[in-house]
Design a binder for these strands. Structure first.
Lengths: 192, 192
DNA sequence: AAAAAAAGAATGAACATTCATTTTTATCGT
DNA sequence: ACGATAAAAATGAATGTTCATTCTTTTTTT
């Protein structure tokens, strides 16, 4: 195994362990020692890859957020009609939250607590730009309500996070039918 | 000042300090010593009122959640028509999140992290029963979509939490107009 | 054999909780 | 109504643990 590959493997193992432990216990309740143990690495080794605990979690956040948005916008083209584009993006997001539940949970926790520092948070927000552009186009074309992007996001996208939480807590099972129902509710709340 | 009153004052000061500090730094990053300092009390005194840190935050959660739901359902009567009842409850909830932002933020953080233990979390959920009953009535009358309560909640209520977060982060200012827009989006996504 | 990477042990700070005293409040006999 | 005293409440300091980070040594790679 090449040296570079080995380094990448270790870094990935650390990121993976961070996600799992932070998901289950929260940032401050996951010691570096446990992250190291789960990644089969010495605590000291973490500091070869990351500056400190905060840096580890910031970088993990950015990495996961990047994966998330890459997945979300993968099949979307700017040339698509607004309605079709929205449906595609929305369903990709839903799908990501379904199959990459751990990653999505981690993002939700980062976005809802003071765990991530402000620069990384801002960096994370940028990734959503294509969706905001799509909405702007929809507003210009008179298809989407001319209201604040924050409200559009609150009604069209954020509910998925809540459903994922409930799913994780075992309160209910998210099926394809639910996803379809949720999509319809999402579109109804933003379309004119 | 009567003895009992004094005790209640101290307990309230502790709860208030807990909310403020946990909001700004998270559960594990708020030491008991800081909570004590902010409440003008010795660290040891906390243990006269609460068993330990976990108990302090559990009890704080239940107290805030109780206040929240009392406020939310205050003017609602079961005799109201479904649509009117929902509008009243929804707007009370929105109003609470607007004027009692600190309390609402605290609840959001509790609901999105592993900070609260499971029994307290379950206890908190129970408080929402009147809203679930109203929705059931709406479904029976053919006014509200026959879909899972979780999805109804995700679309009708949860978006308010997101908007409150954005407001808190200074990203945008939540006005009466926004609230009205959001209410319409909420109703559109749950009505038949 | 030199350089780089990794490891385990060591360090020192921060923290939750408890302990030994002090201060406040309540009770009682006068 | 008053002071003495017992009980309760509150305190600051002490304790023992946990943890992030660093240091020194060992292992691996070049």
């Amino acid at each position: 195994m090449a040296k570079l590959q080995k380094s990448i493997d270790k870094k990935n193992a650390l990121v993976k362990a961070t996600i799992e432990l932070v998901n289950n216990h929260g940032f401050h309740a996951t010691p570096m020692s446990k992250i190291a143990k789960m990644a089969n690495v010495s605590p000291a080794t973490i500091y070869l890859y990351f500056e400190n605990k905060q840096d580890l979690v910031n970088k993990t956040y950015i990495e996961v957020k990047t994966k998330f948005t890459q997945y979300a916008f993968n099949t979307y083209k700017e040339s698509m009609p607004v309605k079709e584009g929205f449906e595609i993006i929305w369903k990709r997001i839903a799908h990501f939250k379904l199959i990459e539940c751990e990653h999505a949970m981690f993002l939700a926790q980062c976005d809802n607590t003071p765990m991530i520092d402000e620069p990384s948070r801002q960096e994370g927000i940028k990734h959503l730009q294509p969706l905001l552009d799509l909405w702007q186009r929809g507003k210009d074309e008179g298809i989407i309500k001319p209201i604040s992007d924050y409200i559009l996001y609150a009604y069209a996208i954020n509910p998925l996070s809540y459903l994922m939480m409930m799913q994780k807590n075992g309160n209910f099972l998210l099926t394809e039918t639910h996803i379809e129902e949720a999509y319809i509710a999402a579109w109804n709340s933003i379309k004119i």
